[in-house]
Design a protein around this nucleic acid. Structure first.
Lengths: 333, 333
DNA sequence: AGACATTATTTACTAGAAGAGAATGGTGAG
DNA sequence: CTCACCATTCTCTTCTAGTAAATAATGTCT
């Protein structure tokens, strides 16, 4: 039997002093009320209500039981009520894990605006280029690049595509020469972002032809910002998201190379545990991310590339592609 | 869905941090756990637990919900626990309604012994010769004679049979003559116990013949003790339970008449609301009553009566007859 | 690395229960 | 004294809660 409804029936009957009236209030037929009370009594082995067809009164046991039951039911009702506002408006603490560099270069400036839009929301933003276990560490959402994607049973929402460029400082190219083909990179001092999924092998495509170059170099570091610093210093060449070096390229501090080859595109995803019953705080942050990255549509930047094969820039993914999708596990070959 | 089990499942899962383990503890299969959680979440519209196949963690909403749910479940569990001792040992307050005279003459002397046998029990004994509505007035048990029995849907347990005698003071008989036949009573000054079911018509039987005598008299009173006082004073004649006048008859203060006729027998019943889930306090009092009235078996008193048709005295009912029985309504003809 | 074990979930499928409706017996009010 | 209402019983239907088997995912232990 459904104990909870039985208890609610008991309470209602006790308060109204009538089986029939309780039935009407609860939307149950008189037989249902009778049965519930009788089963509850049978279950407890205690008579709770003395009743004739015309009159009813709680037994002493019934009064004692009712007292505790009322407390319990009220507490449970309160539990449901507490969820009401949470279910509707963003509140509580939002724990987000995001990669360091893309956040600092593209996102963190907008965070205060986001937070002031939702006054009841607290944000706990962890900048970490590692791929964190968002369930174990209790994150509501993580931003990660496709090179770091592995979890399945999580939902991933595409945020942006980040084209990469091969670049170095003009001084570096002057000293070591500007690579004309991907193979030229084998001899170059390649600065590697160690946490990237494609740290040691850089892949290039052109006219359906793919070249996978195992690169090497003297500097491997776990932050793209450090990579950029090294590039600026003319220490070597690297494959790096265009976004991170956009201003450097425009200012001439860095120069790109191999522009007529297609390079890796890291797709940026928002990853969260489930699509069902998405908490408003997450929903709202997700919308913020989408809105923020789609801002590039208005002032699109297009990385230098060869003619006739223009790729979409960051935030230019189509609506269809932007549908969240369950990611299949990426099985390593 | 059964919300209560869903909540218990949720709690257990949260505490053990494992669906499978919770299932084992609760005696449910893993799918049942999954379904319960999923349905609870669907019902609330809130995700409570983030989970992969390998790891799970409460969401912030889950933690908040759990807190209240735990309180509620604990309160409900306490409700059940509180009933435990009550269900086992007699405790609380026992409210009993009993007729004045039989209680004072036969029962009240033994009450202290009964109460000291059950230290946790309080007795609220209402001496009232009216037929009270035991449900409306919240009595656990009522003692009443068969002449006062009318309730149905109540359980009645036979306690004793109370034979009646026709008697008066010797002085009365000397002055007004001793009745030889029931019809002689029509002329007598009959003292009536007004609350009796047979106050105005006294019935006699002999050899299958029944005589119903409509009697009259100058004194009608609502207490049998007052009737006895009047008898002792030689004011009139009355039909009265033998028990009430036993000592008077033995001492010669009163004398019986019409001994060769069978007279009314009031059967004494214990009446209580239900046989199912009989509270120990009631069970124990019922046993006390039965034991107390059965004491007469050892020193039986037999009212004076004609030879060859000896009736059973108080407490001599057979075991089979002592089975509690649901009383049919006594429909007046 | 790879086989294994454990875990959460999905999909049928089934036993059981919860509730409605009709009928019954009982009770108070007008 | 009739009427209306009430609690209960019985029967029946529907729906649900559970299991078993199968699947997918993931951590662990040689």
């Amino acid at each position: 039997m459904d104990r909870l409804t039985a208890l609610q029936v008991f309470r209602q009957v006790a308060e109204l002093n009538s089986f029939a009236e309780a039935g009407r209030r609860l939307g149950l037929s008189p037989p249902a009320i009778s049965k519930n009370i009788a089963e509850l009594e049978a279950d407890l082995g205690v008579r709770l209500i003395n009743r004739t067809t015309r009159r009813m009164a709680l037994t002493e046991e019934g009064r004692i039981y009712l007292e505790h039951v009322t407390q319990g039911l009220d507490a449970l009702a309160r539990a449901d009520q507490v969820l009401g506002p949470i279910k509707t408006a963003p509140s509580g603490t939002l724990r987000v894990s995001a990669p360091m560099t893309v956040t600092l270069t593209r996102l963190s400036a907008a965070m205060p605006a986001f937070l002031s839009r939702y006054p009841d929301l607290k944000l706990d933003l962890h900048l970490d280029d590692r791929r964190v276990d968002i369930v174990r560490e209790g994150f509501d959402l993580a931003i990660r690049g496709s090179d770091n994607l592995e979890d399945s049973s999580l939902v991933a929402r595409k945020l942006a595509i980040m084209p990469h460029v091969i670049c170095a400082a003009p001084s570096y190219f002057e000293k070591h020469g500007r690579p004309k083909t991907p193979a030229d990179l084998k001899a170059a001092n390649c600065i590697r972002f160690s946490l990237s999924g494609h740290a040691d092998i850089w892949e290039f495509r052109k006219d359906g032809r793919a070249e996978r170059i195992a690169i090497d170099g003297r500097y491997s570091v776990s932050s793209s910002l450090a990579v950029r610093d090294a590039l600026r210093a003319g220490f070597g060449v690297s494959l790096i998201p265009y976004l991170y070096v956009e201003s450097d390229l425009k200012a001439g501090r860095l120069q790109s190379a191999l522009d007529d080859w297609d390079k890796v595109e890291t797709t940026l995803y928002a990853v969260y545990p489930a699509r069902q019953h998405l908490a408003p705080k997450i929903r709202v942050f997700l919308d913020f991310l989408i809105e923020e990255f789609s801002r590039d549509k208005e002032k699109p930047f297009v990385p230098p590339r060869r003619e006739g094969s223009a790729k979409r820039g960051v935030g230019e993914a189509t609506d269809a592609e932007n549908q969240a999708e369950i990611l299949p596990a990426i099985s390593s070959p």
